[in-house]
Every structure is written in structure tokens, then in C-alpha cells.
Amino acid sequence: MEWRDQGVILSSRKYGEYDVILEVLTREHGRHAGIVKGGIGRRHRGNVQPGNEVTVTWRGRLETHLGTYSVELLRARSVAFLYNPAKLAALNSCCSLLCSAMAENEAHEILLDGLLAFLTELEAAKDQIDYWGPLLIRWELGLLTELGFGLNLDDCAATGSTENLIYVSPKSGHAVSCDAGEPYKDKMLKLPRFLTENGVEANIADIKEGLELMNFFIERHMLAPFNKKTPQARRMLMEHIL
């Protein structure tokens, strides 16, 4: 069997002395792994870094086999983030979340487009997290939605109001207005304003709330069913910001 597809490298793990096992988020084949022969070598090592956009050709005897990849670099995106700790932490966080949460060989074209769009914005954004933090949180919200665990942040779960939405119910993932959520405010998750109102600038506190909100639902819906915890890369991103 053989196919050719485009995608973004999610992880690159050493396999034996010379090879690497590459996980790529591809357009038509979803998260797919394969061995890159000689991937450790000088010629390939720079190309097989997480975040790089590549064209891969996969070959294997059966669809279920690990198979081998040959890799052509389309765009060396990872280089843009190597020297900025926060941006590199964001890249690592996105890649490890996709590796942990996505089923293998299940196409999610929208996730690839979302990741490419986010990486493009991240590359262009100023270094401070205020500029790109909200985008990262929106990307995580999109990841939850695409994998079937979307949050409803359009109106209040209790009153239907679209004003003053400042909480999210941990049970339903539905937004809750200030008045309706007041009696349960200790149990509610905080909803940053930039997720419900357009044109609102986010500060560090908002971004922290947003990341904690996403972390709660990512852990509960996407990781806990597989006995997984928040990936180390995402924890490091949170630590970096906090």
C-alpha cells in the first residue's frame, strides 16, 4: 500500500540507532505514524522536527502496519519558535495534545487547517503571550468541538440570556450568566470575556482563566477516558505563563 499526503509533524521519536518514528497530522489520514529510515541522520534531522509542515509518502504492506515514511519538507515552521520559550511551549502543547487526544488514522481536516492557521498566526505575532494566548485558547476550544466535546458559550444555561456570561458550568460545559451563577460561584469555572465578546482585549489573568477552563474539559473529556493526564508540555506551558 502507498499513499501521499500533506500534514504537520506532531512528534519525532528515536527508533533504534538511525531511525525515527514520526507522527504526522495528515489531511486525509488523520494522525498517522510511520518510520523514517535514517531520520536521525544529518540530512533528515532538521526536517523531522515537531511543527514542520511536510509532504509524506507512506508505504506499508497492510493498512494496520506501522509502515515507513519518506518525508519532504514543505515549510520549516519549528525554527520560528525555537528561540522563544513561550511560543515553543505553545507548539509543544498543541502537538502533545493532538498526540494524546486524537484517535489514529481518523481524518480531521479541520484540525489540520486550524493548526496551520494557529502556527501561522503564532509565527507572526509579537512574542508576548497577550498577543497570541487568546488564539491558542480558541484553538483548544476548536479541538474540543471537533472531537465532539464542544462547549456552549453562546447563552446562559439557566436563563438563556446572552449578557454577562462569566461562568461555565463544569457539568454541562454551558455558559452561565453572572446572576444565575452567583449562588454556585465556588463550583463554577471562570469564562474569560474574550471568548464571548468580539474585540475584547485579553490580559494575562484572562489567558490564565481561559487555559484553566480548557484544561478542565480537555482533561475530563479527552484524556481521562484513556487514563491519561494533562501532557507534560501543556503543564509546562501553564507553568510558564503563571
Partner: peptide, 15 residues
Amino acid sequence: NATVDGQTTAHYITE
């Protein structure tokens, strides 16, 4: 090393 893992480690050490 000038890899994603190498630089992640470098940033952590710097911190």
C-alpha cells in the same frame, strides 16, 4: 541540540 526538545530543555534550564 538545535532541536525542539533540545531548545525546550534550554529554555527550562534558563528559567
